[in-house]
Write a protein that binds this DNA or RNA. Structure first.
Lengths: 340, 340
DNA sequence: CTGTTAGCGCTTTCAC
DNA sequence: GTGAAAGCGCTAACAG
């Protein structure tokens, strides 16, 4: 590989001059010299060495992102899509993503090592939880990062998140519009932050419409298909006059459980029972019936996070540290007017 | 961040000595000095700067991997799983993954830039096609890489691939074992290499069992759900005595199309018609009936690729340049004995 | 055994 | 305007 020296020799100038034109410090260089250098660069086929630049400037133009492997060999469809757009946005900003993994429950040593060895300029976090230890750690270390997802509301850190409250609210409103009155929700355990936000949207819509929410309407469970079975059974155990005619599932996988359980009981989703999931997981559009769902604005989220991180790394002052992006309701065959 | 100088000062030795203990050139250092240095490292909390090391050694310990975004906003479930295990294997070998994207159909400039700027030590390719231009390019540049997937058989390059022939053969044999005789296959267009291999497995199993393969049994199509509809319709258009009672779908998405079309025609998959897909795409286990499928050995593949690349980067001589890994048949509810 | 020193390729201050 | 030279943090001859 040719170096800056080769270019200098070829152009008959010093390496400093080459560096000037490389870095657009053109005001220091005469137009003629500039031309010569540019030609020399072409001739020898020179591209600046990133490692050397990085050493000199004490940066890496690398953003760290940790993989999330779900338990039980599952995938996280949202994050799989997310990271692609994150990478793309990062590249546009002149960065690359350095991806890494860490032992389950032991993220900190890996983050620490990456920081101390100067491997990355900043991090993008995803899959944050309440009191996320990574956030606490990075805040403490004062190391640049942005987060896809909120955490402890007491902590002041930059994040972008899907506005689950708005999304679910909109979905419930749509069901109400279709004539549903008894609407249930399959929710997540209390600890989940995004679960809490989505549930808030549900309550908001029901309250606004003056519709009662029976305690039994809210069934909490994990991110599993069987949580859907359980929820649906709980609803069907209610006396007929109280049974919900529609439901929001906190996630598509739970929605699938609900669908399967309903079909097993001889009910037709979309006709006898309306259902809206969350995430637009791949393949859900091909289910019979196709599943209505709230799709997160993944590309925009990735873009927003990178812009934010870029602002931080460039020490800009003015930028939003908290961005909420509403999801988009995709109405498919799993919803319809109530049968009764 | 403390540097090697800080450690040297703290330990009262030269930076060379610190470097020696850091790089386990301990034979040059007395046990006592070694101890002192180690303690000093602890005290000042020192971690070697990767960029500096990299500059010195002209490497990056970074492996480039390009994202593949499928057309039409689809995901590639196999690659999404793959990259996680690839990252993990890379880390064990002391590397990290640098991920990047490139304009559709224009990969080369990005690969070139990454090489010229010394950003990565090697590449892992995935989603290879016939006469893959990336392979041709990297071969020409003599830049280290390994490939998940084969390409032009004339080219000599290191790859790991799923043994689709073995997998499909095994799947067909299983169907035969259950009593099926008229077995069809939804295949890919002729250009697809892996499509060709999988089809070979189909023919091998049918031949071995002495079962005839009507030309109509092979229906080629893209990686879409509608390709499944089309295939199933084509089969059902055959005179009843010739209609297949089971089929292999080249991919789960096509299998879903087949399932949906069959159900629409009032047939029950698993009873009236047996079906096996390919890839174990997430959620397919929750379909009704759950889809039998050939699951690629993704973790092993990632590991094998990294070992191979590591061998190349370390200039080892002895290593397999071509590794075929058989997939695993997951038998679920979509298969059963033929009804007739 | 340990230290001095010359770079790795680049940016940038400071002279000229 | 341009160039000489220092130095980013580290490794590895080479001296001693």
């Amino acid at each position: 590989m040719p170096t800056i020296k080769d270019v200098a020799r070829e152009a008959g100038v010093s390496i400093a001059t080459v560096s000037y034109v490389l870095n657009n410090k053109s005001h220091f260089v005469s137009a003629r010299t500039r031309e010569q250098v540019l030609e020399a660069i072409q001739r020898v086929g020179y591209t600046p060495n990133m490692t050397a630049r990085n050493l000199k400037s004490s940066q890496t133009r690398l953003i760290g992102y940790a993989w999330h492997r779900e338990p039980g060999d599952q995938v996280n469809a949202v994050l799989d899509r997310f990271i692609y757009f994150l990478a793309q946005a990062a590249e546009t900003a002149g960065y690359h993503l350095l991806t890494f993994t860490h032992p389950v429950g032991q993220p900190l040593p890996v983050y620490d090592e990456l920081i101390r060895s100067g491997r990355v300029d900043g991090f993008v976090l995803a899959g944050t939880v309440q009191n996320d230890e990574r956030i606490r750690f990075l805040l403490e270390e004062e190391f640049p990062f942005v987060s896809f997802g909120r955490s402890n509301p007491q902590w002041d850190f930059p994040w972008v998140d899907t506005d689950g409250a708005i999304g679910v609210r909109q979905a419930v409103q749509r069901l109400i519009e279709l004539g549903h009155q008894r609407i249930a929700m399959a929710a997540w355990p209390e600890e989940s932050i995004s679960g809490k936000h989505r549930l808030e949207g549900y309550y908001a819509a029901m309250d606004q419409a003056g519709l009662p929410v029976l305690p039994e309407y809210i069934v909490r469970g994990e991110h599993t298909e069987s949580a859907g079975h359980h929820a649906f059974n709980a609803w069907m155990d209610l006396p007929e006059s109280a049974r919900p005619t529609a439901a929001i599932a906190i996630t598509d996988l739970v929605a699938i459980g609900i669908m399967n359980e309903a079909e097993a009981r001889g009910l037709t989703i979309g006709q006898d029972f309306s259902l809206i999931g969350f995430d637009d997981t791949p393949l859900t559009q091909y289910l019979k019936p196709s599943l209505s769902t709230l799709q997160q604005a993944i590309p925009e989220t990735g873009q927003a996070l990178i812009s934010m991180l870029e602002a931080i790394l460039s020490h800009y002052r003015d930028y939003d540290r908290h961005i909420l992006i509403p999801p988009c309701l995709l109405e498919r065959a799993s919803v319809g007017p109530p049968r009764w």
